[in-house]
Amino acid sequence: MMAGLLGNNVITQIGILVHDIDKVSQAYADFFGVPKPEARWTDAADKAQTEYNGEPSEARAKLAFIDMGSLQLELIEPDLHPSTWRNYLDEHGEGPHHIAFFIEGMKEKVTLLETNGFPLQQKGEYTGGRYAYMDTFKELKVLVELLENDK
Results as ranks from 00 to 15, higher is better:
L146H: 03
K36V: 12
W85P: 01
A61D: 02
W85C: 11
V142L: 08
E94I: 04
L112C: 11
G128V: 03
E74I: 01
G105H: 08
V34P: 01
Q49R: 15
G117H: 10
F101Y: 14
T136S: 10
E58F: 08
T127R: 08
W85T: 03
G4N: 11
G93K: 09
G15H: 00
K138Q: 14
K107D: 15
E51C: 15
Q13Y: 03
L147N: 05
I103R: 06
E108L: 07
G54L: 08
L63F: 03
E77D: 08
Y126D: 01
F65S: 00
G105F: 07
A27I: 04
A100R: 00
P119V: 12
G69R: 09
T84C: 13
V18Q: 03
L80M: 14
A27D: 09
P119N: 10
Y131M: 06
E58D: 14
F31D: 04
Q26V: 07
A59C: 09
D90F: 02
G117S: 09
K36M: 11
A29V: 05
W41L: 14
L71Q: 09
H97S: 03
M106K: 02
S25F: 03
N87W: 10
E91P: 00
P96R: 02
N9K: 14
L113D: 01
M68A: 13
D46C: 11
N116C: 12
R130W: 12
E38A: 11
G95D: 06
F101G: 00
D150F: 15
L5R: 06
A100H: 00
H19K: 15
N53K: 13
D67H: 12
Y52S: 08
R40E: 14
D150P: 05
F32L: 15
L6D: 04
G93W: 06
F101M: 02
L112W: 04
G4H: 08
G7C: 09
N53P: 03
R86E: 13
D22E: 14
